[in-house]
Design a protein around this nucleic acid. Structure first.
Lengths: 139, 139
DNA sequence: CTCACTGCAAAGAATTTGCACTGAA
DNA sequence: TTCAGTGCAAATTCTTTGCAGTGAG
Protein backbone atom coordinates (compact mmCIF):
# COMPACT_ATOMS: atom_id res chain seq x y z
CA UNK A 1 0.00 0.00 0.00
CA UNK A 2 2.15 2.88 1.19
CA UNK A 3 5.44 2.56 -0.57
CA UNK A 4 6.83 5.66 1.07
CA UNK A 5 6.32 4.03 4.40
CA UNK A 6 8.14 0.93 3.27
CA UNK A 7 11.05 3.08 2.19
CA UNK A 8 11.22 4.87 5.48
CA UNK A 9 10.92 1.68 7.50
CA UNK A 10 13.99 0.40 5.68
CA UNK A 11 15.98 3.47 6.61
CA UNK A 12 15.93 4.77 3.04
CA UNK A 13 15.28 8.37 2.15
CA UNK A 14 12.33 9.74 0.26
CA UNK A 15 13.65 11.79 -2.64
CA UNK A 16 12.25 13.47 -5.70
CA UNK A 17 13.98 10.93 -7.94
CA UNK A 18 12.36 8.02 -6.21
CA UNK A 19 8.99 9.72 -6.28
CA UNK A 20 9.29 10.25 -10.02
CA UNK A 21 10.27 6.65 -10.71
CA UNK A 22 7.51 5.27 -8.55
CA UNK A 23 4.92 7.56 -10.08
CA UNK A 24 5.80 6.36 -13.57
CA UNK A 25 5.44 2.74 -12.52
CA UNK A 26 2.25 3.36 -10.58
CA UNK A 27 0.72 4.60 -13.79
CA UNK A 28 2.29 2.10 -16.16
CA UNK A 29 0.22 -0.75 -17.50
CA UNK A 30 3.24 -2.42 -19.02
CA UNK A 31 6.61 -3.48 -17.65
CA UNK A 32 9.12 -0.80 -18.52
CA UNK A 33 12.83 -0.92 -19.18
CA UNK A 34 15.13 1.33 -17.14
CA UNK A 35 15.56 3.46 -20.24
CA UNK A 36 11.80 3.84 -20.73
CA UNK A 37 11.31 4.68 -17.09
CA UNK A 38 14.02 7.29 -17.36
CA UNK A 39 12.33 8.93 -20.34
CA UNK A 40 8.96 9.08 -18.66
CA UNK A 41 10.23 10.15 -15.25
CA UNK A 42 12.50 12.88 -16.47
CA UNK A 43 9.67 15.36 -17.13
CA UNK A 44 8.58 14.86 -13.54
CA UNK A 45 12.04 15.65 -12.22
CA UNK A 46 14.35 17.08 -14.92
CA UNK A 47 17.66 16.72 -13.09
CA UNK A 48 17.07 12.96 -12.97
CA UNK A 49 19.83 10.82 -14.46
CA UNK A 50 19.64 7.35 -15.94
CA UNK A 51 22.16 6.13 -13.41
CA UNK A 52 19.86 7.10 -10.60
CA UNK A 53 17.04 5.18 -12.23
CA UNK A 54 19.16 2.04 -12.15
CA UNK A 55 20.10 2.59 -8.54
CA UNK A 56 16.54 3.39 -7.58
CA UNK A 57 15.17 0.29 -9.29
CA UNK A 58 17.63 -1.89 -7.43
CA UNK A 59 16.51 -0.44 -4.13
CA UNK A 60 12.82 -0.76 -4.91
CA UNK A 61 13.17 -4.35 -6.08
CA UNK A 62 15.13 -5.16 -2.96
CA UNK A 63 12.35 -3.72 -0.84
CA UNK A 64 9.83 -5.81 -2.74
CA UNK A 65 8.01 -2.81 -4.16
CA UNK A 66 8.89 -3.70 -7.73
CA UNK A 67 9.20 -6.92 -9.63
CA UNK A 68 11.81 -7.63 -12.24
CA UNK A 69 10.34 -9.17 -15.38
CA UNK A 70 12.57 -11.23 -17.60
CA UNK A 71 12.29 -10.72 -21.30
CA UNK A 72 13.98 -12.79 -23.95
CA UNK A 73 14.77 -9.58 -25.75
CA UNK A 74 17.70 -9.05 -23.46
CA UNK A 75 17.03 -6.29 -20.99
CA UNK A 76 14.83 -6.36 -17.96
CA UNK A 77 11.48 -4.76 -17.38
CA UNK A 78 10.10 -3.53 -14.10
CA UNK A 79 6.53 -3.56 -12.82
CA UNK A 80 4.83 -2.75 -9.60
CA UNK A 81 4.69 -5.70 -7.27
CA UNK A 82 1.42 -6.11 -5.46
CA UNK A 83 1.72 -6.84 -1.80
CA UNK A 84 1.75 -10.54 -1.09
CA UNK A 85 3.02 -13.29 -3.29
CA UNK A 86 1.94 -13.19 -6.87
CA UNK A 87 3.08 -13.84 -10.39
CA UNK A 88 2.81 -12.15 -13.72
CA UNK A 89 1.27 -12.98 -17.05
CA UNK A 90 2.54 -11.03 -20.02
CA UNK A 91 0.53 -10.33 -23.16
CA UNK A 92 2.41 -11.24 -26.31
CA UNK A 93 0.32 -8.72 -28.24
CA UNK A 94 0.29 -5.47 -26.30
CA UNK A 95 2.89 -6.22 -23.68
CA UNK A 96 0.69 -5.50 -20.70
CA UNK A 97 1.43 -7.37 -17.51
CA UNK A 98 -1.27 -8.67 -15.21
CA UNK A 99 -0.62 -10.17 -11.83
CA UNK A 100 -2.35 -13.20 -10.42
CA UNK A 101 -2.17 -14.82 -7.03
CA UNK A 102 0.51 -17.45 -6.54
CA UNK A 103 -1.91 -20.29 -6.10
CA UNK A 104 -1.41 -23.34 -3.97
CA UNK A 105 -1.09 -25.41 -7.10
CA UNK A 106 2.51 -24.44 -7.03
CA UNK A 107 2.92 -25.71 -3.49
CA UNK A 108 1.96 -29.15 -4.67
CA UNK A 109 4.47 -28.99 -7.48
CA UNK A 110 7.18 -27.72 -5.15
CA UNK A 111 6.62 -30.55 -2.70
CA UNK A 112 6.76 -33.02 -5.57
CA UNK A 113 10.01 -31.58 -6.86
CA UNK A 114 11.61 -31.57 -3.42
CA UNK A 115 10.70 -35.21 -3.08
CA UNK A 116 12.01 -36.10 -6.53
CA UNK A 117 15.24 -34.13 -6.54
CA UNK A 118 16.21 -33.83 -2.89
CA UNK A 119 16.55 -30.08 -3.30
CA UNK A 120 15.21 -27.74 -0.67
CA UNK A 121 13.19 -25.30 -2.74
CA UNK A 122 13.60 -21.73 -1.56
CA UNK A 123 12.03 -19.66 -4.26
CA UNK A 124 10.78 -19.59 -7.77
CA UNK A 125 10.23 -17.54 -10.85
CA UNK A 126 7.00 -18.15 -12.70
CA UNK A 127 6.00 -16.08 -15.64
CA UNK A 128 3.23 -16.86 -18.11
CA UNK A 129 2.91 -15.57 -21.63
CA UNK A 130 -0.27 -15.38 -23.65
CA UNK A 131 -2.80 -13.14 -25.31
CA UNK A 132 -5.03 -10.82 -23.35
CA UNK A 133 -8.76 -10.61 -24.15
CA UNK A 134 -8.32 -7.44 -26.19
CA UNK A 135 -5.54 -8.82 -28.32
CA UNK A 136 -7.42 -12.06 -28.91
CA UNK A 137 -10.52 -10.66 -30.54
CA UNK A 138 -10.10 -8.14 -33.37
CA UNK A 139 -7.13 -7.97 -35.68
CA UNK B 1 17.17 -37.11 -29.24
CA UNK B 2 19.69 -36.83 -32.01
CA UNK B 3 20.50 -33.15 -32.13
CA UNK B 4 22.39 -33.47 -35.41
CA UNK B 5 19.28 -34.83 -36.96
CA UNK B 6 17.21 -31.99 -35.59
CA UNK B 7 19.63 -29.53 -37.14
CA UNK B 8 19.49 -31.21 -40.51
CA UNK B 9 15.73 -31.50 -40.47
CA UNK B 10 15.58 -27.72 -39.99
CA UNK B 11 17.76 -27.16 -43.01
CA UNK B 12 20.71 -26.06 -40.86
CA UNK B 13 24.24 -27.17 -41.47
CA UNK B 14 26.36 -29.31 -39.22
CA UNK B 15 29.61 -27.50 -38.58
CA UNK B 16 32.62 -27.91 -36.33
CA UNK B 17 31.58 -24.81 -34.35
CA UNK B 18 28.18 -26.23 -33.61
CA UNK B 19 29.64 -29.57 -32.68
CA UNK B 20 32.00 -27.92 -30.23
CA UNK B 21 29.27 -25.86 -28.58
CA UNK B 22 26.95 -28.82 -28.27
CA UNK B 23 29.68 -31.04 -26.91
CA UNK B 24 30.44 -28.55 -24.16
CA UNK B 25 26.81 -28.37 -23.16
CA UNK B 26 26.29 -32.11 -23.37
CA UNK B 27 28.99 -32.46 -20.74
CA UNK B 28 28.07 -29.47 -18.60
CA UNK B 29 26.26 -29.99 -15.33
CA UNK B 30 25.67 -26.31 -14.89
CA UNK B 31 24.09 -23.64 -17.08
CA UNK B 32 26.89 -21.78 -18.84
CA UNK B 33 27.16 -18.23 -20.08
CA UNK B 34 28.08 -17.62 -23.72
CA UNK B 35 31.51 -16.54 -22.52
CA UNK B 36 32.02 -19.73 -20.51
CA UNK B 37 30.87 -21.86 -23.40
CA UNK B 38 33.29 -20.02 -25.64
CA UNK B 39 36.20 -20.71 -23.32
CA UNK B 40 35.43 -24.39 -23.05
CA UNK B 41 34.62 -24.93 -26.70
CA UNK B 42 37.61 -23.15 -28.11
CA UNK B 43 40.05 -25.98 -27.35
CA UNK B 44 37.77 -28.28 -29.31
CA UNK B 45 37.81 -25.99 -32.31
CA UNK B 46 40.44 -23.23 -32.01
CA UNK B 47 39.24 -20.95 -34.82
CA UNK B 48 35.93 -20.58 -32.96
CA UNK B 49 34.88 -17.01 -32.23
CA UNK B 50 32.67 -15.68 -29.45
CA UNK B 51 30.36 -14.20 -32.04
CA UNK B 52 29.72 -17.61 -33.49
CA UNK B 53 28.88 -18.94 -30.05
CA UNK B 54 26.16 -16.30 -29.73
CA UNK B 55 24.79 -17.07 -33.15
CA UNK B 56 24.93 -20.79 -32.54
CA UNK B 57 23.16 -20.53 -29.21
CA UNK B 58 20.35 -18.58 -30.83
CA UNK B 59 19.89 -21.28 -33.41
CA UNK B 60 19.97 -24.10 -30.91
CA UNK B 61 17.50 -22.40 -28.61
CA UNK B 62 15.22 -21.76 -31.54
CA UNK B 63 15.35 -25.45 -32.44
CA UNK B 64 14.50 -26.34 -28.87
CA UNK B 65 17.77 -28.12 -28.23
CA UNK B 66 18.86 -25.66 -25.57
CA UNK B 67 17.07 -23.79 -22.85
CA UNK B 68 17.84 -20.25 -21.85
CA UNK B 69 18.11 -19.83 -18.09
CA UNK B 70 17.50 -16.42 -16.63
CA UNK B 71 19.79 -15.23 -13.93
CA UNK B 72 19.38 -12.13 -11.86
CA UNK B 73 23.05 -11.46 -12.30
CA UNK B 74 22.39 -10.01 -15.70
CA UNK B 75 23.51 -12.38 -18.39
CA UNK B 76 21.90 -15.55 -19.60
CA UNK B 77 22.92 -19.12 -19.08
CA UNK B 78 22.29 -22.02 -21.42
CA UNK B 79 21.57 -25.65 -20.64
CA UNK B 80 20.59 -28.67 -22.60
CA UNK B 81 16.87 -29.03 -22.97
CA UNK B 82 15.73 -32.57 -22.52
CA UNK B 83 13.18 -33.76 -24.99
CA UNK B 84 9.67 -33.15 -23.84
CA UNK B 85 8.47 -30.39 -21.64
CA UNK B 86 10.33 -29.84 -18.43
CA UNK B 87 11.60 -27.18 -16.10
CA UNK B 88 14.73 -26.39 -14.23
CA UNK B 89 15.70 -26.06 -10.60
CA UNK B 90 18.89 -24.19 -9.88
CA UNK B 91 21.08 -24.74 -6.85
CA UNK B 92 21.94 -21.52 -5.07
CA UNK B 93 25.05 -23.13 -3.69
CA UNK B 94 26.87 -24.83 -6.53
CA UNK B 95 24.89 -23.53 -9.48
CA UNK B 96 24.00 -26.90 -10.88
CA UNK B 97 20.74 -27.18 -12.80
CA UNK B 98 18.47 -30.18 -12.59
CA UNK B 99 15.48 -30.69 -14.79
CA UNK B 100 12.17 -32.00 -13.58
CA UNK B 101 9.05 -32.88 -15.52
CA UNK B 102 6.58 -30.08 -16.09
CA UNK B 103 3.90 -31.65 -13.98
CA UNK B 104 0.22 -31.35 -14.56
CA UNK B 105 -0.03 -29.23 -11.46
CA UNK B 106 0.77 -26.34 -13.70
CA UNK B 107 -2.10 -27.18 -16.01
CA UNK B 108 -4.50 -26.61 -13.14
CA UNK B 109 -2.92 -23.26 -12.40
CA UNK B 110 -2.98 -22.27 -16.05
CA UNK B 111 -6.66 -23.08 -16.37
CA UNK B 112 -7.33 -21.08 -13.24
CA UNK B 113 -5.44 -18.09 -14.54
CA UNK B 114 -7.15 -18.19 -17.92
CA UNK B 115 -10.47 -18.19 -16.13
CA UNK B 116 -9.49 -15.32 -13.87
CA UNK B 117 -7.77 -13.03 -16.35
CA UNK B 118 -9.34 -13.87 -19.69
CA UNK B 119 -5.89 -14.41 -21.17
CA UNK B 120 -5.24 -17.33 -23.44
CA UNK B 121 -2.08 -18.79 -21.94
CA UNK B 122 0.40 -19.89 -24.59
CA UNK B 123 3.55 -20.60 -22.68
CA UNK B 124 5.38 -20.16 -19.45
CA UNK B 125 8.70 -19.83 -17.78
CA UNK B 126 9.09 -21.66 -14.50
CA UNK B 127 12.35 -21.78 -12.68
CA UNK B 128 12.92 -22.90 -9.13
CA UNK B 129 15.81 -21.98 -6.90
CA UNK B 130 16.99 -23.88 -3.88
CA UNK B 131 19.75 -25.92 -2.36
CA UNK B 132 20.74 -29.32 -3.68
CA UNK B 133 21.32 -32.22 -1.28
CA UNK B 134 25.09 -31.79 -1.37
CA UNK B 135 24.96 -28.08 -0.58
CA UNK B 136 22.49 -28.64 2.23
CA UNK B 137 24.87 -30.77 4.21
CA UNK B 138 27.15 -28.79 6.49
CA UNK B 139 30.46 -28.55 4.77
C1' DC C 1 25.39 17.89 11.04
C1' DT C 2 25.66 13.29 8.64
C1' DC C 3 25.62 10.38 5.45
C1' DA C 4 22.44 8.45 2.00
C1' DC C 5 21.54 9.97 -2.48
C1' DT C 6 22.54 12.24 -6.80
C1' DG C 7 24.46 13.71 -11.45
C1' DC C 8 28.13 13.41 -14.56
C1' DA C 9 31.64 11.27 -17.03
C1' DA C 10 33.76 7.23 -17.95
C1' DA C 11 34.52 2.43 -17.55
C1' DG C 12 32.98 -2.23 -18.20
C1' DA C 13 29.91 -5.97 -19.72
C1' DA C 14 27.04 -8.21 -22.83
C1' DT C 15 25.41 -8.62 -27.38
C1' DT C 16 24.89 -7.34 -32.32
C1' DT C 17 26.27 -5.91 -37.02
C1' DG C 18 28.95 -5.25 -41.51
C1' DC C 19 31.69 -7.54 -44.54
C1' DA C 20 34.41 -10.66 -47.16
C1' DC C 21 35.83 -15.43 -47.00
C1' DT C 22 35.03 -20.51 -46.35
C1' DG C 23 33.14 -24.92 -46.56
C1' DA C 24 28.80 -28.19 -46.00
C1' DA C 25 25.41 -30.04 -48.84
C1' DT D 1 28.26 -24.57 -57.21
C1' DT D 2 25.71 -22.01 -53.77
C1' DC D 3 24.48 -19.86 -49.90
C1' DA D 4 24.42 -20.75 -44.79
C1' DG D 5 27.88 -20.22 -41.62
C1' DT D 6 32.15 -17.98 -39.91
C1' DG D 7 35.88 -14.83 -37.96
C1' DC D 8 37.29 -10.31 -37.13
C1' DA D 9 36.78 -5.64 -35.91
C1' DA D 10 33.82 -2.22 -34.69
C1' DA D 11 29.52 -0.59 -33.15
C1' DT D 12 25.65 -0.97 -29.94
C1' DT D 13 23.33 -1.50 -26.09
C1' DC D 14 22.89 -2.26 -21.10
C1' DT D 15 24.72 -1.57 -16.52
C1' DT D 16 28.09 -0.32 -13.06
C1' DT D 17 31.72 2.72 -10.79
C1' DG D 18 34.42 6.77 -9.06
C1' DC D 19 33.91 11.08 -7.26
C1' DA D 20 32.55 15.40 -5.41
C1' DG D 21 28.41 18.13 -4.45
C1' DT D 22 23.57 18.22 -2.30
C1' DG D 23 19.76 17.68 0.60
C1' DA D 24 16.70 14.48 3.67
C1' DG D 25 16.27 13.25 8.32
Amino acid sequence: MDWERTLARAGRRLTASRRAVMQVLLEAAVPLSPQAIYERARPLHPPLGLVTVYRTLDVLVELGLLRRVHRDGGCHGYVLASPGHSHTILCRGCGQAVEFPGGEDLDGLVAQVQQATGFRVEGHLLQLVGLCPACRSPR
